[in-house]
Design a protein around this nucleic acid. Structure first.
Length: 368
DNA sequence: AATACGTGGTT
DNA sequence: TAACCAAGTAT
């Protein structure tokens, strides 16, 4: 388990970390709930992005109980703009479970923590080690990169199976009683020194024993197969302007409970068949009006494109043309639930995906 | 195993 | 600019 080389690795890494560690908000807390929140937010998300969200979140929901009791829209609103919104919904569902099953205390058992919604192998290890100092590995992208280089491993880190092996290796490296700092040190090294493109080996505390560095292969590793290109999706959105009591307001709707941007708010819109169909605005108008009728909305859509937006997701790219629409009179009301009239005064009480936040902000400022 | 799931920063 | 990347999880 602990030969000379692994002892060296852990000791040097810990010395470096204790000197160089960044002062991050969640590192100032020993509250397992705060550690948990930070780990969920940090999934696939940069530290700099997370900091303000983390501070607002724990300020508004200081304890598991506060989060468990909060309205879901409130939680979603505090996640707005952070992305991967199922994280927020899973976190609250898990908080409610912790409140009921564990008296509001984050469990310290591997099985219990791993059973929480949104907590996978990495996050479980992070919580157990950082909050409870248990010798569990926490293998994320940073750790796989560092280990791939230090031991010159050529397994494809894009493959799920690779993580399993990395976990055994990482576990074997944890110095006795130092799991919390060691796991964070490994990630910190990956984030600050052993970076993806051009690692700063000159400042690396373990460079002299790094196998990849010795062989001059530090920039070739880790091996990672390329992700597929995002698919283009074309859409027509309706900007339905209210009259009378709803003057200055726009009709918006809430997205379905599951899937992409679940439960977030948006402009009503339809998908065009392809890029060519998206160029045919007149046809878009007809299809948009028909779709609105299906929703119980008799609106007249104009062929004048008043806004255009592109939104890039990991797996798809939305191209949206915004077409203005008018309604017959102020008694107009949607037949289905999930629709609301929203003006500048109500705008901030809803949660918007980035695209629609931009589009609507632009509209309220310029009146298009 | 492969894909869905956001957003912003970097090269 | 078009990848590529960032403290992954659920299905």
């Amino acid at each position: 388990m602990n030969d000379g080389k692994t002892t060296y690795f852990g000791a040097e890494l810990l010395n470096w970390y204790r000197k160089e560690r960044r002062d991050l908000p969640w590192r100032r807390s020993r509250d397992p709930y705060h550690i948990w929140v930070s780990e969920i937010m940090l999934q696939q998300t940069r530290v700099d992005t997370v900091i303000p969200y983390f501070n607002r979140f724990v300020d508004r929901f200081p304890t598991v109980g506060d989060l468990a009791e909060a309205p879901e829209e409130d939680v979603l609103k505090h996640w707005e703009g952070l992305g991967y919104y199922s994280r927020a919904r899973n976190l609250q569902a898990a908080a409610r479970e912790v409140a009921e099953l564990y008296g509001g205390r984050v469990p310290n058992g591997k099985k219990e923590v791993s059973g929480l919604k949104g907590v996978g192998p990495y996050t479980a290890g992070a919580i157990l080690s950082i909050a409870y100092d248990q010798p569990e590995p926490a293998v994320d992208g940073n750790v796989m990169r560092v280990l791939s280089r230090y031991f010159c491993l050529e397994e494809d880190i894009a493959k799920p199976a690779t993580r399993i092996g990395m976990e055994s290796l990482a576990a074997s490296l944890i110095p006795e009683g130092q799991a919390a700092d060691f796991n964070q040190a490994l990630m910190e090294l990956g984030a600050m020194i052993c970076t993806p493109k051009s690692p700063s080996c000159d400042f690396c505390p373990v460079a002299i024993h790094c196998a990849a560095k010795r062989e001059g292969r530090e920039k070739e590793l880790p091996i990672k197969t390329k992700a597929k290109k995002a698919r283009d999706v074309y859409r027509f959105a309706a900007l339905i302007e209210g009259v009378g009591a709803h003057a200055g307001q726009v009709l918006v709707r809430r997205r379905p409970d599951t899937g992409l941007l679940a439960k977030m708010w948006e402009l009503p819109h339809i998908e065009a068949t392809d890029a060519a169909a998206w160029e045919d605005v007149a046809e878009g108008v007809r299809r948009l009006e028909a779709a609105l009728v299906d929703e119980g909305l008799g609106a007249s859509v104009s062929a004048r494109t008043v806004g255009e937006a592109q939104h890039i997701f990991t797996h798809l790219v939305w191209h949206i043309k915004v077409l203005p629409a008018t309604v017959a009179d102020e008694r107009f009301a949607p037949a289905r639930t999930g629709y609301e009239w929203v003006g500048p005064e109500q705008f901030e009480s809803y949660s918007w995906p980035n695209v629609f936040r931009k589009l609507l902000t632009e509209y309220f400022v310029n009146r298009m």
